[in-house]
Simulated scan of single mutants.
Amino acid sequence: MGNGSSCFGQSHFTEVNGLRTHALVGGAGDPLVIVPGLGCASWMYTRLAGQLAQERTVYVYDPPGHGWSAGTWAYPTRIEHLTAHLAAWLRQMGLSGAALLGHSLGGEVILDLAVRCPGVAGALVACAPTGVPENPSVPIQLLRLLADLPRERLELLRLGFHAYSVPGVRRLFLLAYDQRRHLTGPLLGNVTLPTLLVSAGRDPVVHAWTIREIQRHVPQAEVQVIPGAPHALTDACPHEVARVTLDFLKRLESLRNN
């Protein structure tokens, strides 16, 4: 693989439940959808998308109220809103059954989608996913993010500042607060899709034991660790994340064909 690209794909807009919804689209091959983390936007995932697009048609989705996708004052303010919108967008785009790669809160959303909307998601790749009751109070979540900042690329911090200004403080707070009551072990136990959990070796936001706890609940989950990676492993280590993702999907295809 090459070094990826900071310029990736073409913008695609579609109307979903009255909201203009954006995705960056590029590459060729079977589809793979990237679902961003809390407050993040499509432009923060172009390094990873450039790697994946060498073998897949990659859609970098902007959730409502994030990136270039529209939201409203009241929507989304709960994680279930994010799940419902992603399901509607996938159906409208003809992407039901596509492989999904979610980062951080995006990982929690795709796990939620697999349970709440059977048949919409394909294989799941959750990178540094949130999604267990250990999610701390919002102030502690913020402290963890601050601890992670020195480990990230300076360019990502610039892109992230722009991205976080779109949803605004109120929406970010409400979605972060909603994490404390969202996914639980019993719900995760209903995820029946093949699942890869990608753990970042130097992540102060989502600890390694959190990944192990999710694996304990999800029957078909396996874990890959990217040593030395910070929370935004999708940006810091795009080659490594793309490699484990594509290898995982190829193994699934080989099993289906045999």
Results as ranks from 00 to 15, higher is better:
I34G: 14
E213D: 11
T130P: 06
W209I: 01
T192G: 02
Q10M: 15
A200T: 07
W73L: 12
V33H: 10
R170I: 02
H239K: 08
V205E: 06
L143M: 15
T14P: 09
A53W: 00
T192R: 12
M1E: 05
A200K: 03
I226T: 05
G106L: 05
T195L: 03
T57K: 14
L149N: 06
H66V: 09
A114V: 04
E108K: 04
T184P: 06
P150L: 08
V16D: 11
A163V: 09
D112C: 12
R56M: 11
H103G: 02
D247A: 14
E55P: 05
E213A: 12
V115E: 05
E15T: 14
T77Y: 04
D203H: 08
V60H: 08
T192V: 13
V115C: 07
A74T: 10
R180F: 04
S254L: 14
G102K: 00
L159R: 10
S6W: 11
A28D: 11
I34W: 09
L154Y: 07
T77N: 14
G71K: 03
A70V: 05
V60M: 12
L124P: 09
V169L: 09
G189L: 03
L154D: 07
F173L: 08
G97C: 08
G97N: 05
L187D: 07
C40D: 11
G18I: 10
D62T: 14
T57E: 15
I34Q: 07
Y59W: 11
S199P: 09
Q54Y: 01
L19P: 06
A74W: 09
H162G: 09
S104T: 02
P219R: 08
S96Q: 09
A23D: 11
E55W: 01
P230M: 00
D112S: 15
T234L: 13
E213Q: 10
R56P: 12
G18A: 10
P227F: 15
S11F: 10
P186H: 02
G185E: 02
G67L: 12
G9A: 13
L252M: 03
I140G: 03
R170T: 02
T14A: 15
V205W: 02
A128E: 07
G228N: 04
S96M: 03
G185W: 00
P133G: 03
A221P: 13
P31G: 00
L172Q: 01
L159W: 11
G9R: 02
R78C: 10
L157I: 15
G39K: 04
S69H: 02
H12M: 14
F161W: 10
R47L: 09
E134G: 00
A41C: 14
E15H: 10
L233P: 04
P167C: 03
N135C: 07
R171L: 03
